[in-house]
Design a protein around this nucleic acid. Sequence first.
RNA 1: GGUGCCGUGCUCGAGUGGUUAGGGAGCGGUCUGCAAAACCGCGAACAUCGGUUCAAUUCCGAUCGGCACCUCCA
Length: 464
Amino acid sequence: MTLSFFNTLTRQVELFKPIHPGQVSLYTCGPTVYNYAHIGNLRTYIFEDILRRALERFGFKVSHVMNITDVGHLESDADAGDDKMALASKREHKSPWEIARYYEDAFFKDCAALNLVKPTLVCRATEHIAEMQAMVSKLIDKGYAYVVDGNVYFRISKFADYAKLSKRNLSELLEGARVDVDNRKESPLDFVLWFSQSKFPNQIMKWESPWGTGFPGWHIECSAMASKYLGEHIDIHCGGVDHISVHHSNEIAQSEGCFGHPWVNTWMHGEFLVLDKAKMSKSSGNFLTLKSLEEQGFEPLHYRYFCLGAHYRSQLFFSFEALQGAKNAFESLKNRVISWKLDPQKGAHPEKAADYLKRFNEALANDLDMPIALSILWEMLKDTSLGGKAQLDLMRQFDQILGLGVDNFEKAELSPEQLALVQKREEARADKDWAKADELRKELLGLGICLKDTQTGTDWYLSY
RNA sequence: GGUGCCGUGCUCGAGUGGUUAGGGAGCGGUCUGCAAAACCGCGAACAUCGGUUCAAUUCCGAUCGGCACCUCCA
């Protein structure tokens, strides 16, 4: 069985073959840390987490690098709009550095809550200014970049393959380009590598450079850091679909211009989570965070499960109703797992487990087809001929990919007061005082506890 | 304006040239003092209009609708 992935570069599902046998270099574009990550951002990191886990299941040693964009960037290369770090800084009365560290920390807390496997290396843009400058210098030397008034721009016309990722022709892009007020550029499509002259002369985050004191363009950080830690030729680079036509196209141009050879073998992009018929936008402030979901009674893992229901290359429409469905399914799954843990029965046909695992892995290998993987999971959950023991074992293996935290599923503890109520009801039942028993049941239900009368006594579980 | 993707039952969401996806919700049943959980069963779909074909939800075209990208953005 071999992994296959959809490669944006070729627009096809391809058999995955690493550059070095048994090893994979993976670069995933990280967050810009001027605000909380919203659930749309997080969907992409969940997709990348499944990818990471899949690679490891198939035996690869993965070097996974993620950047943290902690430098402020303008809304466009044309020096228009606002610097989001500076805005946040003003809003919260903190220095840009404090803002960056605060939201970086918040981001990793969200990741942990979603059971995302940590990248093997996380790197901050502000700690790699020298590497970026070195790359910019090299691009100038090779004629791929030019300096105007202290700003450095990438010369698109020099890089013939500029549209190879976006599959759009240059004249089309030029026609579509919005009015560009930066007349320092040779072409509207040229993008900034280094900014010394911006409308923010009092920029707090700034560094000395051969071209003037300023800050790097947005795209250069990924190229500089990816090559520093993963080399000049990497296996997989991921991000959201919005990055295809600008950010990643620019990264390819500057990296391949600099190195003189192809840079990334496989480009993978996660589709958007769509909310209220509009995409969630971090910069417009219209977004939901993990915290907003928690305030409505949803745990981070409910959201993770919700995301697994759709293929990463399909748009996923968010609604609280749909999330509630995911929550119900997740809790039902959890209760099954707990019952297996408490009473691992041997089934009539535990040997069928191997087939379920094979089918699950096949779905995974087929461009991370999690909706199919989930349907196999549910088929397995309901197949009592396997027996709880085999089902639990299989569930643990599935969960190495799904990341739902099966090992942490435990029967919740009741407080002594709650246990006393359960006891009181049992006594009422023994006395056949049904009215009192029902009243106590109702009281417990108000505390989120459902009772289940069995032959061996009264059992309980948490309602959801 | 340009480019691309998509349109499946009450809902979310896979998939396929002829044969059951799956989850949630709903309904009926078994079980129960009553419940709950579990289990069994049930209903219901492929935007519209043409075309290709023995056969189309699946292929082709048009229309309508939605979304995304072209600008910081997952």
